[in-house]
Each structure stands twice: as structure tokens, then as C-alpha cells.
């Protein structure tokens, strides 16, 4: 039931990143529904990153922009790195004229670029062989991993 509701919001987890499609709507009700759907999904899945795909959004006025930006802030408060992807040129020029505060937004052109911005945190995990089997997490694995990193402290400063 819950998953179906999320699916209807167009939210998917890819590589530990929650990708959510913002609705093309200026109506308070649907944007608030998107906010609460995103909030509970982020809380449930604890993604390290959230990509808010706004490529379908063709129109934003100051009210609907504020609701969308708030959705991003909510996800950020839960500890996710939030990237807005795919703002349309018409939307951007309207937002400039409306003089809304866009300073806090991190944006990317495409989904791929957005994933790239979140990826640095993912790479660390991929490179650590002990963490490969992170699905079957065992305390002794973690202990072994810790021991290894203590004996080779130089690895931590190595550039990727």
C-alpha cells in the first residue's frame, strides 16, 4: 500500500540515492502531498542523497517555488544531500523576476550530473572490500575492517 503511494509520486532509490519527480503543479495541495510523501520516504530509506527532478515542472510561482524549496530543506534536515535537477529555462527566468531566494539550492543539469555530485560519498564504500557485503552486516566484519584501517593509516589520506 505504502509503496504504491510512493510509486505514484515517482520516487525511486538508485545507488542509495532517492530520486523524486516533482509534480508539474502549482496547487498547494499536490505540492504539500509531495512534501509529506518525500519526507516519509526519506525518513524510511535514509538515503545519503536526494535528487529532486524538476524537469517536468513548466511553471512555478513564488508560492509553489517556496513549497518545493521547503521539500528540499526537509530532506536536508533528515541528513540527505539534496540536489535539484533539470530546472527549465522558462521557470528559471520567471524565478529571477520573482526575486525568490535561490541561493541555498544545489542544482545540476541532468540526473547523471546530480548523481555525480552525490557520488563521492558512495565511492568510499565501493572501494572498501570489507564493506562489499554490507547487506549481511556482521560485527566481526566491522571489527576486521577497523583493524585494517588502523594498521594502514596512510590509506586514508590517499587521493582517490
Amino acid at each position: 500500500m505504502i509503496d504504491q503511494a510512493f510509486a505514484s509520486h515517482g520516487m525511486h532509490v538508485i545507488d542509495g540515492v532517492l530520486v523524486a519527480q516533482a509534480p508539474d503543479s502549482i496547487e498547494d495541495a499536490s505540492l504539500r502531498q509531495f512534501q509529506s510523501g518525500l519526507l516519509s520516504r526519506v525518513h524510511a530509506t535514509s538515503p545519503r542523497g536526494v535528487i529532486l527532478d524538476v524537469s517536468r515542472v513548466r511553471l512555478l510561482d513564488s508560492t509553489s517555488y517556496a513549497l518545493l524549496a521547503d521539500a528540499g530543506r526537509m530532506a536536508a534536515m533528515l541528513g540527505a544531500r539534496v540536489i535539484f535537477v533539470g530546472f527549465q529555462p522558462g521557470v528559471v527566468s520567471a524565478l529571477m523576476d520573482l526575486d525568490v531566494d535561490v541561493g541555498a539550492l544545489i542544482t545540476a543539469r541532468t540526473l547523471e550530473d546530480g548523481m555525480e555530485l552525490i557520488r563521492p560519498a558512495l565511492r568510499v564504500i565501493e572501494e572498501d572490500p570489507e564493506e562489499q557485503a554490507s547487506d549481511d552486516y556482521k560485527p566481526e566484519d566491522a571489527a576486521a575492517g577497523d583493524g585494517q584501517s588502523q594498521t594502514e593509516p596512510g590509506q586514508e589520506t590517499k587521493t582517490p
Partner: peptide, 12 residues
């Protein structure tokens, strides 16, 4: 782009 600006003004 022009349509979008006008529609935004109407929405405001």
C-alpha cells in the same frame, strides 16, 4: 519562455 513568464504573472 514568454508564455511561461506571462502564465507565472497570472498565477501570482
Amino acid at each position: 519562455a514568454g508564455q511561461s513568464l506571462i502564465a507565472t504573472a497570472v498565477s501570482e
